[in-house]
């Protein structure tokens, strides 16, 4: 069951511009990306929200070296380890992302938030 996050509206509006500029079908591959990573994500009980930042190669593979946690002190936690594992494992053969829009996805910031509750 999925829940979703909403970002505050003004921020979203500002950020929507470049996303909209990315062209048709943007949301498709974003959704696809999210789904791909989720498939490998198994957060342990009691996981906390953690943000993971990382860089991508042109072929859709992850630059393994570049994975970082925010906050950085969570780098050794199970929450981060699970997130990191998800990104790397499901990305072993590269994620399916449009090469012509590489500039848009060469740097990623993903928030992993284990929530419970019914689907929205």
């Amino acid at each position: 069951m999925r829940r979703s996050a909403v970002l505050s509206a003004p921020v979203l509006a500002a950020l929507m511009v470049p996303v909209a500029a990315l062209g048709v079908g943007t949301s498709d591959w974003i959704d696809g990306f999210r789904t791909d990573v989720e498939r490998c994500w198994n957060p342990p009980e009691g996981s906390a929200v953690v943000i993971v930042t990382f860089g991508m190669n042109r072929d859709g593979t992850v630059i393994g070296d570049s994975l970082r946690s925010i906050p950085r002190e969570m780098a050794e936690t199970d929450s981060f380890t699970a997130a990191r594992r998800a990104i790397l494992r499901c990305g072993r053969d590269g994620y399916d992302l449009p090469p012509d829009q590489y500039e848009a996805w060469r740097e990623i910031e993903m928030t992993f938030d284990p929530l419970v509750g019914g689907e929205q």
Binding site: A104, I108, V116
Partner: peptide, 24 residues
């Protein structure tokens, strides 16, 4: 009933992507 929903959202600047998914 530990429904581990998951949310992945990303934030993008130029060069990053936002996953702008609305929900609850």
């Amino acid at each position: 009933r530990l429904d581990t929903g998951q949310i992945i959202s990303g934030v993008a600047h130029t060069g990053l992507i936002i996953f702008a998914i609305f929900g609850g």
